[in-house]
C-alpha cells in the first residue's frame, strides 16, 4: 500500500467511525488487473481493500445521484471529479452540506487501452509507479513510460487539483496550459468540413449503442433518456447511421456547459470511439461566448440555464445568419 493510499484509508476510517459519513466512495482492487472498481465503504472495519492509482478510470461523481439527498457521502475526488460534483450540486442533485470531499491532486489517469496496445490484451498485473508503469503478462514483464500512457483527456486537463474539497491529501501538482483543449478543437476545425464529417461518420459507425458513455457520465442522470422515448421516437432505434449519429450529437449537446472533460465516456466505450472531441468543442465555445467553465463553483448558472438581452450571436433582427 502506498503512503497516499494509507492516508486516504485513514481518512475514510475516521469519517466512518466518527459518523461523519454514511458511505465513503473510493476505489478497491477488482478482480481484473486493468481496472480498479468503484467501492462503497460503510464500515470503518472493512475499509481494507481500498486502492488509489492511475488506473482508477471512473468518475466517482457518477454515483452521487444514486443516493438520497439526506445521505452523508464522502468521496475521493480528483480535479475533474470535484468539478463534476460542483456541477451536480448546482443542478440540485445533492446538498453540498451532505458531502465530504477527499481531494487528491491528480497525476493523470493511465489509459488501459494504451497498455493493451503496448503489451497485448492479456495482462496479469499492473503496478503504477511514479514515472513508470510495470505490467506483467504471460509474455513477460514490461516497463512502460507513464507519461505515454496517459489518457487523452488528462493530457489536456486544465484542473488537476481538486476544487472546494473538505480535505486534500497529497501535494498539489502543477496545472497545465489551459489552451490545450482549445488547440485540439481549433486543429480539428481546420481540417475542413468534409474531413470533419468523414471522421464523425467513421467514429459513430462503430457505436454499438450500449450507452456505456451515458452510464459512465456523472452528468447523464436523466430518469428517461431521449433515446428511450417511444412517443414520439426521437432517434432511430437501431445501429443505423441516423441512429448512431443522432445519439452522439445529442448526447454531447446535452452536456453543453455541464461537461467537465473528464473523459469517462471515452474510457468506458468498448469500441474505442473518440467522442471527447465533441464535448471539447462545446466546452471551448461556452468559454469563448459566455466565459463559462463547468464546475468551477456550485453557484454560477450554466449558459443554457440563463440568457441575456445583449447576447451577441447569429440571431440578428431582420437578417439572415451571421
Amino acid at each position: 500500500m502506498t503512503e497516499l493510499e494509507n492516508r486516504i484509508l485513514a481518512e475514510a476510517q475516521r469519517l466512518l467511525s466518527e459518523n461523519l459519513a454514511d458511505v465513503v466512495i473510493a476505489f478497491k482492487q477488482a478482480d481484473t488487473p486493468l481496472r480498479p472498481q468503484p467501492a462503497f465503504f460503510t464500515d470503518a472495519e472493512a475499509v481494507n481493500d481500498l486502492v488509489y492509482n492511475g488506473l482508477c478510470q471512473n468518475n466517482l461523481a457518477n454515483y452521487l445521484t444514486r443516493y438520497p439527498r439526506e445521505k452523508k457521502i464522502a468521496m475521493v475526488v480528483r480535479g475533474c471529479e470535484s468539478r463534476s460534483v460542483n456541477a451536480l450540486v448546482l443542478e440540485n442533485q445533492h446538498p453540498r452540506e451532505n458531502l465530504y470531499l477527499i481531494g487528491i491532486p491528480c497525476e493523470g489517469i493511465v489509459d488501459w487501452r494504451k497498455i493493451v496496445e503496448a503489451v497485448g490484451e492479456d495482462v496479469l498485473s499492473v503496478q503504477d509507479q511514479a514515472d513508470i508503469v510495470v505490467v506483467r503478462t504471460p509474455k513477460g514483464e514490461f516497463t512502460l513510460d507513464r507519461a505515454a500512457l496517459m489518457h487523452g483527456s488528462c493530457l489536456r486537463c486544465t484542473q488537476k487539483n481538486p476544487l472546494g474539497t473538505d480535505v486534500t491529501i497529497g501535494k498539489p501538482v502543477a496545472e497545465q496550459d489551459p489552451h490545450l483543449l482549445r488547440e485540439r478543437v481549433k486543429n480539428f476545425e481546420a481540417l475542413g468540413i468534409q474531413t470533419r464529417y468523414e471522421y464523425f461518420r467513421q467514429e459513430s459507425e462503430r457505436c454499438i449503442r450500449c450507452y456505456a458513455c451515458r452510464e459512465a457520465c456523472p452528468m447523464c442522470y436523466c430518469e428517461e433518456c431521449f433515446v428511450d422515448h417511444t412517443g414520439p421516437r426521437w432517434t432511430e432505434s437501431g445501429v443505423t447511421p441516423a441512429g448512431m449519429q443522432g445519439w452522439h450529437i445529442i448526447r454531447a449537446f446535452h452536456q453543453t456547459g455541464r461537461c467537465t472533460s473528464c473523459g469517462a465516456c471515452e474510457r468506458a466505450c468498448p469500441m474505442d470511439i473518440h467522442m471527447t472531441y465533441l464535448t471539447d468543442k462545446l466546452n471551448t465555445d461556452m468559454y469563448d461566448k459566455y466565459q463559462f467553465v463547468a464546475g468551477l463553483d456550485a453557484k454560477t448558472q450554466t449558459p443554457f440555464a440563463a440568457f441575456n438581452l445583449d447576447d451577441k450571436n447569429r440571431f440578428v433582427a431582420g437578417g439572415t445568419s451571421k
Binding site: 472498481q37 468503484p38 467501492a39 462503497f40 457518477n62 454499438i208 449503442r209 450500449c210 450507452y211 456505456a212 451515458r214 452510464e215 459512465a216 421516437r233 432511430e236 432505434s237 437501431g238 468506458a268 468498448p270
Partner: peptide
C-alpha cells in the same frame, strides 16, 4: 450492483446474449 454502471457492454459483447426488441420505424 453498487458499482455496476448499467451499460450494455457485457451483454452486447456476450456471444450468448440474444435478447432483442422489435421496433416499428414509422418514418422508414
Amino acid at each position: 450492483a453498487k458499482s455496476c454502471l448499467g451499460c450494455g457492454i457485457c451483454t452486447f459483447l456476450c456471444p450468448t446474449c440474444f435478447c432483442f426488441d422489435i421496433v416499428d420505424e414509422v418514418r422508414k
